[in-house]
Design a protein around this nucleic acid. Structure first.
Lengths: 206, 206
DNA sequence: CATAAATATGAGTAAATACTCGCATTGAAA
DNA sequence: TTTCAATGCGAGTATTTACTCATATTTATG
């Protein structure tokens, strides 16, 4: 358990400027990761990009992994908020409309930056944070599940728990495969993701 | 284009032992990448694991990226062969059977190692090889498309080109989301992938 | 203003690591 | 056997990079 504490924040901010510094560092880290990938993700470059000294960076993050973790949490937070906002609007008139709304919400947050997205995936697999990620995903999934259940009659025989594990993965895969093309085809990405989700949900097993 | 030549092999093997050395290096690289991720992917460790000297490694790979590229090509080659083998068996009695066969083929090759899979994704995004990857994927997709077309009547209104872009992504996403759990749930992974693909293919647009 | 706590600085250090080069060993052709 | 090219070796080098620490600056509080 000593490993975990090494990832926790080193200093709690007491003044405003310090939180601004922290935010600048996380944002710079995100920028660097998206631009240069894991290869270019080094603390000196990040501090320079953030316009702070390397010493300041290490006042807020005990080590490089702690910074990466903060970056991941930040992205996940945004994702969760986007989904929550979409869910707050309530279910659509039918299943297709509800699904399309959810896909749009997911896409709004989508990184057009495949370097960033894939780097985060890899670091999520490497760092000891699966439990935390599952918990976060679980909360978003619950809201999503409630929405879908409003159109239970339109769906095939679904195991809700399984669907909530599979569906987010499907959406992301469909979107990524079209949005990371050059040039990106965002309309197509949306349509394909909707088709995949609707197909999955409405399939009648014979 | 001077960048590309820097990724090409440094030496063509003339004797047997040299190809054995090269293979050992690529295999060791794969092992290290799967075990330690991109963080642990360094040439000294790879040479040690392969049981060869660091000098030998650099006789076959001009630099670290060239080795990574060889690793990626090797994996892709295996993937393509697995799909080709499955396709050679011809279409099944119905769409569901055909789809399940394809999913099984994809899973046979699936890395139970999420560190390896995500690392490759990230490096594919970073290295200048998108054209080559598209070409390889295109060839596999063609065989896949022919198989599916045998059951055209069971499918909804599909744009084949779009389907061949989306489907592999769906399969991988569905499989990964279940196979990377601990413990992995491979049966579930197969069922969910089949459901996603079948749903996508058979959906009737209203 | 005085004082202390909080925050910022960046030169410097130790370690990791990509890669070289001169030399040793092996294989094959003569 | 001789000879040369192909292959293998690994100590060594130059660079990168994670991280520290002594010091300077800013802010809050009285």
């Amino acid at each position: 358990m000593s490993g975990k504490s090494a990832l926790e924040p080193r200093k709690q901010p007491r003044q405003r400027r310090s939180t601004a510094t922290r935010d600048a560092i996380v944002e710079a880290a995100t920028h660097v990761l998206g631009r240069a990938g894991l290869t270019g993700f080094n603390t000196n470059a990040i501090a320079a990009r953030a316009g702070v000294s390397i010493g300041s960076l290490y006042q807020y993050f005990a080590n490089k992994d702690a910074l990466m973790l903060a970056l991941i949490r930040c992205q996940q937070e945004r994702q969760a908020q986007t989904v929550a906002a979409a869910a707050a609007a309530g279910p659509g008139r039918n299943l297709a409309e509800t699904v399309r709304r959810m896909v749009r919400a997911a896409m709004a947050h989508h990184h057009d930056d495949s370097l960033l997205a894939t780097a985060i995936d890899h670091e999520e697999a490497r760092l000891p944070i699966s439990a935390e990620l599952d918990a976060m995903l679980g909360r978003s999934a619950a809201a999503l599940g409630a929405l879908l259940m409003a159109h239970r009659d339109e769906m095939g025989d679904i195991e809700p728990a399984a669907a909530l594990q599979t569906l987010p993965a499907l959406v992301r895969a469909a979107v990524d495969s079209w949005a990371n093309l050059s040039p990106p085809q965002l309309d197509r990405a949306e349509d394909e993701a909707v088709r995949a989700v609707l197909g999955y949900l409405t399939l009648k097993v014979t």
